[in-house]
Nucleic acid binder design. Sequence first.
DNA 1: TACGCTATGCTTAGGCG
DNA 2: GCGCCTAAGCATAGCGT
Lengths: 159, 159
Amino acid sequence: MTRSKVNLAYISNDSARRNTFRRRKSGLMKKAEEITRLCEIEACAIMFSPYDPEPVVWPSPLQAQQVISRYRKMSSLEQSKKLVNQEGFTRQMLEKTMEKVTKKQKENEHNQMTQVMYQCLYGRGLDNLPDGVLNNMSGLISQNLREIERFLQRSHHNG
Amino acid sequence: MTRSKVNLAYISNDSARRNTFRRRKSGLMKKAEEITRLCEIEACAIMFSPYDPEPVVWPSPLQAQQVISRYRKMSSLEQSKKLVNQEGFTRQMLEKTMEKVTKKQKENEHNQMTQVMYQCLYGRGLDNLPDGVLNNMSGLISQNLREIERFLQRSHHNG
DNA sequence: TACGCTATGCTTAGGCG
DNA sequence: GCGCCTAAGCATAGCGT
């Protein structure tokens, strides 16, 4: 049977759909590879499917996280720049202060504890830490988490 | 001149590279559209290029954020489940405590300040806040950010 | 179910306006 | 720089294994 024009709709046949997904997934990632190489851009892709036990993350979980955090940073920055009313000023102030804190964090980079806490706070996951950093830090970590809890409670009571 | 096989390397010619990027970007997004429709999967893609003033987010910033948060949730869950060694215990403890703090945060949901701070800390952006929350809170916010700074400094000095 | 094969449709490099 | 055009090269549907 000759190949016909693809009907661009949900493929109801289970095995056909699974096959198409497998093939097109690899095709898509190949295209992503190519445009990244040819143009030297930064990109990532995430796909959830019933056919993979885990989400498919291209090019890698680590690089994807970097792209995502860059995106988050930029989009919130753009938003704060666009706003000029009272609320906008508050947003800008928040951005600036957070940047200041981030800068201080960088200065303290040798402090492993701060590093751990920060990654935790920002939800970046704990993959970027040097090997062994998490060892022997249980006490310190739980101590500082209690500190955060107290901070939240204070915020609650004061607010 | 007949079309030749593409050399899969960085295109040094500026205009050619820009052209290729424009074309392949649209091609890539079309492919993403197609696989999503054909197989009904959930996916997103982010691309940073010198040719776009803003990052290109497919299918939309909102849907991308949903996919990203789903990925984050799943990956941290998988990580904590997979690990069984000393470092794994530490990770699990971190996860649990952070969940606890998150739960407490939910209990305090009526506290607008806590909500603002939390969203800020987690880098979720400030878009999900109810209207007007950010108004008249400048003083409170900067106060609490100073609190965070002090916390980081303590972490530094103690570490 | 996944993979290899091949014909066919689609993508896109190169050229032009 | 962008969009159109055409043909060369690629992706992939349908089938067999």
